[in-house]
């Protein structure tokens, strides 16, 4: 019970701090779950993101469910998701009920311009940190570079890129095994 409550609180905390969608959440997840608590490996987070990207649903919710399921099964998945969703639920209710032109308030705009710069830097430093563990050798670089280029500069559906990189992983594995024999 205490652990479920903790799960809810940690994800509510993550939910409060996730500005700018599922990917902006990576640095905070990494810090809260991997670095601070040792509840998950950084590479696991990447696995969940990749799978979440190719699955239906909202990425942030998918990742929360993955983690919750890992800790405490299906109930854990539900609790983590509820925690993740709770802050935005309350905030949007407040905005819908009272603050109609919330997004036009100058101070709000300024605060978020500052936050956005911070989120950009957070993502850059996270990518640099995770590079060592997830892009460990040349074949992995050969996957990273084209996926980055295609996702950044073309409109190829991301789910397709994920499927292709999974296939590439299997092919690389097969080549390695062939060499080993």
């Amino acid at each position: 019970m205490t652990e479920l409550l903790n799960l809810f609180i940690v994800f509510a905390k993550i939910g409060v701090c996730t500005f700018g969608g599922g990917y902006a959440m990576v640095p905070i997840l990494e810090r809260e779950l991997a670095e601070k608590r040792g509840w998950a490996e950084s590479t696991e987070l990447l696995d969940w993101y990749a799978i979440s990207q190719a699955m239906p649903g909202i990425i942030a919710v998918n990742v929360a469910t993955f983690f919750g399921c890992k800790r405490r099964g299906v109930i854990g998945g539900i609790v983590a998701t509820l925690g993740m969703v709770f802050p935005s639920f309350v905030i949007i209710l407040a905005i819908a009920a009272v603050l109609n032109n919330f997004a036009d308030v100058p101070q709000v705009k300024s605060a978020f311009a500052g936050i956005r710069a911070c989120v950009v830097v957070m993502i850059i430093t996270t990518v640099l940190r995770l590079w060592k563990t997830s892009v460990a050798d040349r074949p992995a670089i050969a996957i990273f570079v084209p996926i980055f280029a295609l996702s950044a500069f073309t409109g190829v559906p991301l789910a397709l890129l994920i499927v292709a990189s999974g296939v590439a992983g299997v092919a690389i594995g097969a080549v390695r095994q062939g060499r080993g024999k």
Binding site: V26, W131, I143, F148, S165
Partner: peptide
């Protein structure tokens, strides 16, 4: 195969 791709998507979102 998924890990570097996942990091690539995070980088491109960044």
């Amino acid at each position: 195969g998924l890990r570097p791709a996942s990091l690539a998507l995070i980088a491109s979102a960044g």
